[in-house]
Amino acid sequence: MLRDITIGQYYPADSVIHKLDPRVKLFATLLYVVSLFLFKNWAGFLLAALFLFGFIWLSRVPVSYMVKGLRTIVVILVITALFNLFLTPGETLVEFWIFRITREGIVSAVTMAVRLIFLILGTSVVTLTTTPNQLTDGLEKSLGPLNKIRIPVHEIAMMMSIALRFVPILVEETNKIMKAQIARGADFESGNIIKKAKNMIPLLVPLFISAFRRATDLAMAMEARCYHGGEGRTKMKPLKYKKRDGVAYLVVLVYLAGIILVRVLVK
C-alpha cells in the first residue's frame, strides 16, 4: 500500500538534465506549464511535443518509466476528457439520449487530454532527475526574495527536507505497529470502508504519539548542534550557476517565445 507512493522518486543517471541547477529546472517547469495553456493549434502542439521529447531524450530516463507515472492519472484524464466531450456547446455531430457530441467538444477533449499528459510528463522529468534535497535547496534559493515579506522560506525548506528524511522511518514504524496490533487481534482487512477507517485508529494513535516524540528528540538534537534558523548559516553544497545553466535558461526562453509566436502567427 505504502510502497506505491512515488512522489519525489529519483532516477539516477548521468545526463545534462541531471546536472542542471535545480533553480533552472524549477523555472523551466513553471514556464513550460504556462506554455501548455498558451497554444491553441497543431503548430503549438508540435513545438511543445518537440520540446518535451527533446527534454526526455536528454535526461536519459527511459520513456517507459515515465509512462508508468501516467497510470496514476488515468481516471482524472478520462473524466476531464468526458466532461469536455459532452458539455461543450457547438455544432452537433452525434446525438443520443441526453448526450450530445459536438465538433468543438471533440477538439477541446483532445487538447485537454494532451495538455494533462504533457503536464505530467514534463513535471515528472524534473522530479525524476532532481534529488529531493536539490529540489528543496532550489526552492529555498529561488524563493529567497519572499523572506522580505516575512515568509520563512528557510524554515519551510528545512521542514520539507526533514519530512523527506522521515518518510521511510515512519513507513517502517507503521509496519511495525501494524504487526504488533495484528498480533493482538486487530483487523485491518475486513469490513466496509467506514469499518476499515475505524480499524485504523489503533494504528494511527501510536504512530502519532511516536512521531511527536521523534519531533521533540530531533528538535533537541538540532539545537544541541547549534541550529538557530537560517541566519548566519553557511552551505555545504551551495548552488552555483554554471555555463550549461545559462544555456538552459536561453533554450527555455526561446521555446516560450516560439510558442507565443506560433499562437500569434499561425491561424
Binding site: 538540532m222 548542534r225 547549534c226 541550529y227 538557530h228 548566519g232 548559516r233 553557511t234 552551505k235 555545504m236
Partner: peptide, 10 residues
C-alpha cells in the same frame, strides 16, 4: 549540518 549552523565557510 553542525558546521553549516555555526557559519563555517564551504
Amino acid at each position: 549540518f553542525g558546521p553549516e549552523n555555526i557559519g563555517v565557510p564551504t
